[in-house]
Write a protein that binds this DNA or RNA. Structure first.
Lengths: 230, 230
DNA sequence: GCCTTCCTTCGGCCGGCGCCGAAGCGTCCC
DNA sequence: GGGACGCTTCGGCGCCGGCCGAAGGAAGGC
C-alpha cells in the first residue's frame, strides 16, 4: 500500500528517532536509557522508538543483563544516514546560539569519527594526503592502490580482512563538503590510530583530538603539518 | 529544534510524496496534474505536496503556461532516492497481486532507466561487459579507464563534458542487488542508446525495451548475447 | 528474600498532517 | 469576450502517531 520508501523514511522522519541515529553515528553501542536521557524523552517513549528502528533494520540490539544495548545495524546504515544528512544539512544553515555550542561544533569540524572512520578536517586532510602520495586513486570514486594496501598493512599496521564490505568508499563530509575515506580501509586506519593513541575521543561525543604522538606520527607517515591538524 | 535529518526524511515519509518521487525517477518532468492522477489524490493535495518537495530542495519546478512542470532537482537527488530505496525495499518482499502487475514488474526488472542511466538486468549486464573489456575499473568503486573514455567517445559517440558531476558512479541496482553504471558517463551512454534507437521506452513508465537494432549493436559493441537482453 | 535499576506494555491525551471540495486566479483556445 | 482547463488557496474533517505516567516484569546487588 504505502511505498517502502515512505515506510523507511518515516523511521527517520521523527525528531527523537533521528536524534538517536545521529548519536549512534559515533559507532558505539548505547543503552536504551542513555538514548532516552540524551534525547530528553521518557524511557517508555525511547523503548518504543528503539523497537521500531530495530524492526526497520536500522539498529541491531544486544541484551546484556537488564541492559538493552543498541547500535547501528551495519556500516552501510551509517553511511546511508551520513549521506542523507549531507543533503539534509545543506538546506539549513544553523547559527550557533551558545558559546558552548560553538566550541563543540568547532571541535567536531576539526576532527571526529563518522561511525568507524575519520571525518572532519582531519579526515579530509588524511584522505587527500593519501591521494597525493599515490596510496589512493581518486578517479570517479576511491581506489586503494597497491602501494596503498602495502602502506596500510606495513606502515600503519592495519589488517585488511577479506570481508564483503567494500575496501574503500568515499563518504561525503558534511562539514568539509569534500569526500573522506570510508569503507574497510578507512575503518582499519581509524582503529589503528586509536590503538596507537594518536587520536583520542573528546568527552562523550564523536569529536576526537590528535595527541602530540599523533601529530608526530601523522607528519612522518603522511607529511601532515600542524596546520593540517588545527 | 527538530534535527535536519528528520525534517528531510519527513519529506519522503509520506506515501503520496514518495510515490511522486518514485515516478519522477524516470528522469522526466511531470505536470502537477499528472502526478495527482498517478498517485490517486486530488489536485489540491498534489499541489501542496509538490510545494513542500520543491521547498525541501528535492524537486525543481518550471512553469509553462498553465502547467507546472516538476522534476527531480539534480542527478544527486535521484541517486540518493535510489540508494534509500535499495535499503527500503530490502526489508519488504512484496509478492505480485495481479498478472498485470507481474508483467510490469518483469519488464522493469529486465530493463529500465534509473533517472538518466540504465538499470535492471540490462544495466548490470552492460556494466559488467564494460568491466570485462577493461573499459571500467571496479576496484572499490568504479573508474573509467583510458580505453573506456575513448570507447565512449568514438565507438558510442558520447560526449563527456567537464561538468562538476562525477564521471562514473556505482549505483546499486534494487532488483539485481549489484551495481550498475551511473554518473555522467552512465547518463551519456544511456542517452546515446536512446538516440540511436537501440532502446525505447515501454509505455509511460521507466521500463525500456531493446530493439532489434539495439540487440545487434550491443552484440557488436559489448559482446552481449540475446540471453543477456532477455 | 527484598530493594533498586532498567526496561517494557498499556491507556489516554493531544497535536499535527494528509485528505477533500469549494472557490478563485491565471492561461489558453475559439 | 467567453468558456474550458490547470493549478492554488482555504476551511474543515479525521486519523495517525508521539508523548507521558502508571504498572508490571526481569536482572542484579545486598
Amino acid at each position: 500500500m504505502t511505498p517502502p520508501l515512505a515506510r523507511f523514511a518515516s523511521l527517520l522522519a521523527d525528531g527523537t528517532r533521528a536524534t538517536f541515529c545521529m548519536a549512534l553515528l559515533d559507532g558505539r553501542a548505547w543503552t536504551a536509557g542513555e538514548l532516552a536521557r540524551y534525547a530528553g524523552v521518557a524511557a517508555s517513549t525511547a523503548s518504543e522508538h528503539i523497537t521500531l528502528l530495530v524492526a526497520g533494520g536500522l539498529l541491531a540490539e544486544e541484551h546484556q543483563g537488564r541492559h538493552r544495548y543498541v547500535r547501528l545495524a551495519t556500516p552501510r546504515v551509517a553511511e546511508l544516514i551520513e549521506e542523507i544528512s549531507v543533503y539534509a544539512d545543506a538546506g539549513s544553515p544553523v547559527p550557533h546560539k551558545s558559546l558552548r555550542g560553538a566550541v563543540a561544533s568547532e571541535a567536531m569540524a576539526r576532527a571526529r569519527t563518522c561511525y568507524d572512520h575519520l571525518a572532519g578536517r582531519l579526515g579530509v586532510r588524511v584522505t587527500e594526503a593519501m591521494a597525493a602520495r599515490g596510496l589512493l586513486g581518486t578517479e570517479g570514486g576511491f581506489t586503494l592502490t597497491g602501494r596503498g594496501r602495502e602502506w596500510l598493512e606495513s606502515e600503519v599496521g592495519a589488517t585488511l580482512g577479506g570481508g564483503r564490505r567494500p575496501l574503500v568508499r568515499a563518504c561525503l563530509d558534511w562539514t568539509e563538503r569534500r569526500p573522506h575515506l570510508a569503507g574497510a580501509a578507512g575503518a582499519a586506519l581509524c582503529q589503528r590510530l586509536h590503538g596507537r593513541g594518536w587520536v583520542v575521543r573528546i568527552g562523550t561525543q564523536r569529536a576526537v583530538r590528535v595527541t602530540p604522538d599523533g601529530a608526530t606520527g601523522l607528519r612522518d607517515l603522511l607529511g601532515l603539518s600542524p596546520a593540517d591538524l588545527a
